[in-house]
């Protein structure tokens, strides 16, 4: 509860700072560079949750505990959400600076593939009626998808030719305005906090939904009986 309040205050501070405290970066039309504070953390969360979902899937296959499957599913759902957000904010920026919403820039290509993988993952989940099989198949698919992702590095070799403003706005490089850097890092923190909070909420929801299923009740009861006897 206290986390929720702190998070919302922090979020509000970051949003105000993004528009009022940090200056617009030079070399970009108007105020467009401010998208950095929102778009980049969203993309970061989308990637992080993809990774998290894959790791949870691996653990699920090894241990077969429903909890890790809940983690994998929640991470994938949030990943899809942030993926869509990153795509939307990205194409708004693309329209403002490059002239069109969509032009198959390498970054756009890779995020579309990520979107398609998420879409396929949920399509698979909804198509397998048996819950046990559904979890195994989803885990296997997410591992397979993860394995093919590195090939995109070869496939999209013109990554240097990308219009994506990496070199001008890379926070790791010196030369970024210190105010911008502060707000950017703060925003990264805020988004990660938001992600963790939403993730825990989603897992709790899945657990409660699972509890309504009679099979879960029965197996729990039987387990307790087994421990007593």
């Amino acid at each position: 509860m206290i986390i929720k309040v702190l998070l919302s205050i922090w979020m509000a501070v970051i949003i105000s700072a993004a528009f009022l405290y940090a200056g617009a970066a030079a070399g970009f039309p108007g105020q467009t560079s401010r998208i950095l504070f929102f778009h980049v953390p969203q993309a970061w969360i989308a990637t992080l949750s993809f990774l998290l979902s894959m790791i949870a899937s691996c653990i699920y296959l090894a241990r077969r505990s429903v909890k890790t499957d809940h983690l994998a599913l929640s991470a994938a759902e949030l990943g899809l959400l942030f993926c869509i957000l990153a795509t939307a904010t990205g194409s708004i920026f693309a329209r403002a600076t490059w002239g069109s919403f969509w032009n198959w820039d390498p970054r756009q290509t890779s995020i579309v593939i990520l979107l398609m993988i998420y879409g396929a993952y949920f399509a698979l989940r909804s198509a397998v009626p048996d819950p046990e099989k559904r979890r195994v198949f989803a885990a296997v698919y997410s591992i397979l998808a993860f394995v093919t992702v590195p090939f995109l590095v070869f496939v999209v070799p013109r990554i240097t030719a990308s219009l994506h403003p990496e070199n001008t706005m890379n926070p790791a490089k010196p030369g970024m305005d210190p105010k911008t850097l502060k707000v950017f890092l703060g925003s990264l923190l805020a988004y990660t906090g938001l992600f963790v909070w939403m993730l825990r909420l989603k897992i709790r929801l899945l657990r409660l939904e699972g509890r309504q299923e009679p099979e879960f009740v029965i197996s729990e009861k039987l387990k307790q009986e087994g421990e007593k006897g």
């Binding site: 819950p131 299923e213 009679p214 099979e215 029965i218 197996s219 039987l222 087994g226």
Partner: peptide
């Protein structure tokens, strides 16, 4: 040993 099977909410058999 103690085989139990339930499927989509219905218990088929236990123990």
């Amino acid at each position: 040993s103690n085989i139990c099977k339930h499927y989509t909410g219905t218990l088929l058999f236990k123990d």
